Computed example of a mutant assay.
Amino acid sequence: MTNSRDYWQGFRDGTPFILLILPFGAVFGIVATESGLNILETMGFSVLVIAGAAQFVALQMMLDNAPVLIVLAASLAVNLRMAMYSASLAPHLGAMSWWRRGIVAYFMVDQSYAASVLKYEQQPHMSHGQKFAYYMGVVTPICPVWYMATWAGAALGTAVPSGLPIDFVVPITFLALIVPMLRTLAHVVAALVSIIGVLVFSFMPFNLGLLVAAVLAMMAGAETERRMTRARQGQA
């Protein structure tokens, strides 16, 4: 019963994200089909990769005829945040069975991480079963909607007027997720360095500036955190 309550609490917390996931997934479906992918290939992207930002990056680089290794490297760079998400959730979910960890890993997206880590920090007394139930509740209204929105965009993309500015949803989605997560100086520094890096290295071919900016941002954030930790230890 307790796990059921946590599941439905997660479901309620994840439901508002539908307002962002629906247009985001539809935009990808439209862009993918307009780029020459068929519906099966487009759905393969969303079901197997299930990472909107990386999907857009990979699609754009494929259109630019970038080498396969460059496409993979750029997509991995964009998704490096998932490794940080995993490290952040490990103290809460790392002791679960391997199959549960596999499910968590597959469904790990920005929204499921943001909602879950906030819940776990607010209620550290939750059991592993409760945490897993809450996590699954969050992803229930998110991931299936992402699949359906992608399919709808791919199937109905030709009916959308070419001049309709629907791509504004993509940056708004990430702004809505990132801003509340800028809770420390290290987070702010990493975000600023990534923005500056993308602008400075925008001249690089195949969007390689994304790789450089991502590495610089992680280095800057890690160094800021190291100095902050040293300063706190010195004060103690």
Score class of each variant (00 low, 15 high):
residue 118 L to G: 15
residue 118 L to Q: 14
residue 121 E to F: 04
residue 122 Q to C: 07
residue 126 M to A: 05
residue 127 S to T: 15
residue 127 S to D: 08
residue 133 A to E: 02
residue 135 Y to Q: 02
residue 135 Y to I: 04
residue 137 G to I: 05
residue 139 V to I: 14
residue 139 V to F: 06
residue 139 V to K: 03
residue 140 T to P: 01
residue 143 C to M: 10
residue 143 C to L: 10
residue 144 P to Q: 07
residue 144 P to V: 07
residue 145 V to I: 12
residue 147 Y to G: 01
residue 148 M to P: 01
residue 151 W to M: 10
residue 152 A to F: 13
residue 154 A to S: 04
residue 155 A to M: 09
residue 156 L to A: 11
residue 157 G to Q: 08
residue 159 A to H: 12
residue 159 A to R: 12
residue 162 S to A: 14
residue 166 I to E: 08
residue 169 V to D: 08
residue 170 V to R: 08
residue 171 P to L: 01
residue 171 P to C: 02
residue 172 I to C: 12
residue 172 I to A: 15
residue 176 A to I: 11
residue 178 I to N: 04
residue 182 L to I: 10
residue 185 L to G: 10
residue 185 L to P: 00
residue 186 A to W: 13
residue 186 A to Y: 12
residue 186 A to E: 13
residue 188 V to H: 07
residue 190 A to Y: 08
residue 191 A to W: 05
residue 192 L to C: 13
residue 192 L to I: 14
residue 192 L to H: 02
residue 193 V to A: 00
residue 193 V to S: 00
residue 194 S to C: 14
residue 195 I to G: 01
residue 196 I to H: 01
residue 205 P to R: 03
residue 205 P to W: 05
residue 205 P to F: 09
residue 206 F to M: 00
residue 210 L to G: 04
residue 212 V to L: 11
residue 212 V to K: 03
residue 214 A to L: 03
residue 214 A to M: 07
residue 214 A to W: 02
residue 214 A to V: 12
residue 216 L to C: 03
residue 217 A to H: 02
residue 219 M to F: 13
residue 221 G to Y: 13
residue 221 G to F: 10
residue 223 E to Y: 11
residue 224 T to S: 08
residue 224 T to C: 15
